[in-house]
């Protein structure tokens, strides 16, 4: 992989421990272990505990995965069940294809 120089800062916004948020977190961890091993960090933010944080990242839907670094900022909403879409959204898939 040629993206070792980059690190991924990921934030997952959830609202409580719903089945959707747990599914999203599990999916995310699996993808990261598979494709970004060692260069990623995941921060889970529960909006029920920190509602004031929703405004900053323009969160509407939950669960929302926000890729802060590297640029550009991307958001992926939903339970992240579609691996293909998540990887494209995180700019991982296209790079693997090259």
């Amino acid at each position: 992989m040629n993206n070792v120089d980059k690190s991924y800062e990921l934030r997952l916004y959830v609202a409580g421990k719903t089945s959707k948020s747990i599914a999203a977190l599990n999916n995310l961890k699996r993808y990261c272990e598979e494709h970004l091993k060692g260069i990623y960090s995941i921060e889970v933010i529960d909006l029920l505990e920190h509602p004031q944080l929703a405004e900053g990242d323009q969160i509407l839907a939950v669960p929302t995965l926000v890729k802060k670094v590297p640029e550009p900022v991307r958001k992926i909403i939903g339970d992240l069940s579609n691996e293909e879409k998540v990887l494209v959204g995180l700019d991982i898939r296209s790079k693997i294809q090259i």
Binding site: Y13, A15, K20, A23, A24, L47, L48, P51, A54, E55, I59, L60, A61, V62, P63, T64, P72, V73, R74, K75, I76, I77, G78, D79, L80, S81, N82, K85, V86, V88, G89
Partner: peptide, 17 residues
């Protein structure tokens, strides 16, 4: 353009905001 959708979600984020 910034948003990718995959799977189920709801608008709780908006509600909470």
């Amino acid at each position: 353009s910034e948003i990718e959708e995959t799977g189920e979600y709801n608008l709780d984020g908006l509600f909470i905001r």
